[in-house]
């Protein structure tokens, strides 16, 4: 008996997604290096690596979440893994992946700080959003990891919605996902614009880090609980 199948699931998914993440980073690195070398105009804060790097983990985790929801359950059932173990293993791998992205960001940040003296990049300015000039490193790390993890869960919800319930439910999951990501933006970003002239979240509740962090975790738990309820008896087709 394999003692802990969820660890096997975790290892498999984390290894696979880390490999994909490495490809993504290599491609982005190559693009920025090429831009940096051949187009001097791109050596500004608007085009700098770290400024735009913040978008990458969220998008990557959203896509990986969709892939997980759409097809991974079938793979693990094929190998005799229970739905419960699949869920726990996927949860663990997504948490570690979100933390890994933040670690990569941190390493890049301080790596570029170190290169500040020998490159034309104004690293101290460009690092600000990630290193957390206003919030502090630890808080930036936690907020980044939690919002990145939320992206994964939104993707998982969309992928699973389509694969389990078909088109209408899938589009419903997309709508719900957009709403969740909208709430995430609203609680974290004080620069959001009002929709339909409704009062903005921050105008009503004020900017509050505990509220933003707690709200993000609550959304993760809510989506996770809903996914677990649907996955635990989900049928899988043989095709």
């Amino acid at each position: 008996m394999k003692p802990r199948l969820y660890l096997t699931v975790f290892k498999r998914l984390y290894t696979l997604y880390s490999r994909w993440a490495a490809y993504v980073l290599l491609i982005i690195g190559a693009i920025y290096t090429a831009l940096f070398i051949f187009i001097p105009e791109t050596r500004t804060i608007d085009y700098a690596l770290i400024s735009n790097f913040q978008q990458v983990p969220g998008i990557f985790m959203l896509i990986v979440g969709i892939i997980t929801g759409a097809g991974m359950l079938k793979f693990f059932i094929y190998h005799g893994v229970t739905r419960r173990h699949f869920f726990i293993g996927t949860l663990l791998s997504s948490v570690l992946l979100a933390v890994s992205w933040m670690l990569i960001g941190t390493v890049l940040t301080y790596g570029l700080y170190g290169l500040d003296a020998i490159t034309p990049i104004d690293a101290s300015r460009e690092m600000a959003p990630l290193a957390g000039e206003s919030r502090g490193m630890a808080v930036t790390f936690m907020s980044g990891a939690s919002t990145t993890l939320l992206s994964f869960f939104v993707g998982w919800m969309i992928g699973f919605g389509f694969s389990r319930f078909g088109g209408y439910a899938g589009f419903g999951a997309i709508a719900a996902g957009i709403a969740v990501l909208g709430i995430r933006t609203e609680v974290w970003d004080s620069e959001t614009t009002s929709v339909f002239n409704l009062p903005r979240f921050n105008e009503v509740f004020g900017t509050s880090l505990p509220l933003a962090f707690g709200g993000t975790l609550a959304l993760i738990v809510l989506i996770g609980a809903a996914l677990f309820l649907f996955i635990r008896e989900a049928p899988v087709s043989v095709d």
């Binding site: 008996m1 394999k2 005799g80 229970t82 739905r83 419960r84 008896e233 043989v238």
Partner: peptide
């Protein structure tokens, strides 16, 4: 169904 030991004891092989 959802029994970790028994699911390990059954293997369905088809043309994936």
């Amino acid at each position: 169904f959802e029994n970790a030991r028994r699911m390990q004891d059954v293997q369905l092989v088809y043309q994936r």
